[in-house]
Simulated assay, not measured.
Amino acid sequence: MQHGNRKFSLVIYRTLSEQGESGEWTKSKLGNSLEKNTFDPIYDVYHTSQKLQTIFNMKSCRITVSTNDLKPECFKPLFATILSGSYNRLVLAGECINSEHLLDLMDKARLNIELHISVFIRGDFRHDNAFKFQSFTYLHSHWARIEDLKSIRNSDEIRLKDTKFNCGDINSFLHYWVGCEEDMLNYLIVELEKNEKVDEQIILKDIKTYNATHDKKCGTFMINAADRKQRLLLVGKLTIYEGKNMVSLQTYHATAEGRNNFLQ
């Protein structure tokens, strides 16, 4: 959470109290609601943070969940509690997570947030909301498809590492971005498949570029989207990082210079 120049973060993880292991979440005998039957640091820390937000005028709240020490039965009640509150950044850290629990998170998380997931995600993972968040980072993106990239609309910043995309996939996405009738994103950076060698000719095939520059680390190219009434971000700065095997696209509002280059 942020108050003025002060920042506060809520980190959710399983802890041990002086009395022993933290309490379990159980179903209430009076209904389907969940309640804690013993002292539970996770529950208490979260609700303390909610009380702090009523005291201070918080500009932002980040929730970090570490999956390493959480028992499987804790995920659903934990997500039901923390994802119904107020937050603008959600971090899921750890080594791995069950697909069922990740699906539950995608169902419950707000879409107008920044999502950062560093845990390993299985290759067969699919969810309609995975590419709909305001900003998102996936450190293990081998499950992502080119159709997922093309489905992005009005996102801010997207970072995908460990993908299975090749140069042809990036070319296909760029053609789609040029012709799309809606704004897709402000910034995208993609790490290509591990053994894929960056090839500018394949990435830029049939893409009209201008103001190209090269240095030892990367090549930069300006591209223009088609002039659509519903789009504002019509100019793209494409950067191809040969040494890092990465490609980025940063978009801008159309300028007179960009418009003139496009019409030539």
Score class of each variant (00 low, 15 high):
residue 1 M to H: 11
residue 5 N to L: 08
residue 7 K to A: 13
residue 12 I to C: 06
residue 14 R to W: 05
residue 15 T to D: 14
residue 18 E to T: 13
residue 19 Q to Y: 13
residue 24 E to M: 15
residue 26 T to G: 08
residue 30 L to V: 13
residue 31 G to C: 02
residue 31 G to A: 02
residue 32 N to M: 11
residue 34 L to W: 13
residue 34 L to S: 12
residue 35 E to D: 05
residue 39 F to E: 14
residue 41 P to C: 09
residue 45 V to D: 14
residue 45 V to I: 11
residue 45 V to A: 14
residue 45 V to F: 13
residue 47 H to I: 04
residue 48 T to E: 14
residue 52 L to G: 02
residue 53 Q to M: 10
residue 54 T to Y: 09
residue 56 F to G: 00
residue 58 M to Y: 10
residue 63 I to A: 00
residue 64 T to K: 08
residue 67 T to I: 05
residue 68 N to Q: 11
residue 69 D to E: 13
residue 69 D to F: 11
residue 70 L to C: 04
residue 72 P to T: 05
residue 72 P to I: 06
residue 73 E to W: 12
residue 73 E to Y: 13
residue 77 P to D: 10
residue 81 T to M: 15
residue 81 T to L: 15
residue 89 R to S: 11
residue 90 L to V: 04
residue 92 L to W: 09
residue 93 A to Q: 13
residue 95 E to S: 15
residue 96 C to F: 10
residue 100 E to K: 03
residue 101 H to E: 08
residue 101 H to Y: 13
residue 104 D to S: 15
residue 105 L to R: 00
residue 106 M to E: 09
residue 110 R to L: 15
residue 111 L to T: 06
residue 113 I to V: 09
residue 118 S to F: 05
residue 121 I to Q: 00
residue 123 G to E: 12
residue 126 R to P: 01
residue 126 R to N: 07
residue 128 D to T: 11
residue 130 A to Y: 08
residue 130 A to W: 04
residue 131 F to V: 12
residue 131 F to S: 10
residue 132 K to S: 06
residue 133 F to M: 06
residue 134 Q to L: 15
residue 135 S to W: 07
residue 137 T to E: 10
residue 138 Y to C: 03
residue 139 L to R: 13
residue 141 S to H: 04
residue 142 H to C: 12
residue 142 H to K: 15
residue 142 H to Y: 12
residue 144 A to K: 03
residue 144 A to R: 01
residue 145 R to V: 05
residue 147 E to L: 10
residue 148 D to I: 02
residue 149 L to M: 07
residue 150 K to G: 04
residue 163 T to R: 00
residue 163 T to N: 00
residue 167 C to T: 01
residue 168 G to V: 05
residue 172 S to P: 01
residue 173 F to T: 00
residue 176 Y to V: 06
residue 180 C to A: 15
residue 181 E to V: 14
residue 183 D to P: 00
residue 190 V to L: 08
residue 190 V to S: 02
residue 191 E to F: 06
residue 192 L to A: 00
residue 196 E to F: 03
residue 199 D to G: 04
residue 202 I to N: 02
residue 204 L to Y: 00
residue 207 I to A: 01
residue 208 K to S: 05
residue 209 T to F: 03
residue 211 N to S: 09
residue 212 A to V: 12
residue 215 D to E: 05
residue 216 K to R: 13
residue 217 K to R: 14
residue 217 K to T: 12
residue 220 T to K: 14
residue 223 I to W: 01
residue 224 N to I: 06
residue 227 D to V: 07
residue 229 K to I: 12
residue 229 K to S: 12
residue 233 L to I: 08
residue 238 L to M: 00
residue 239 T to P: 05
residue 242 E to G: 11
residue 249 L to F: 08
residue 251 T to P: 02
residue 253 H to C: 09
residue 254 A to M: 12
residue 254 A to I: 14
residue 255 T to K: 07
residue 258 G to Q: 03
residue 258 G to V: 02
residue 259 R to L: 12
residue 262 F to E: 06
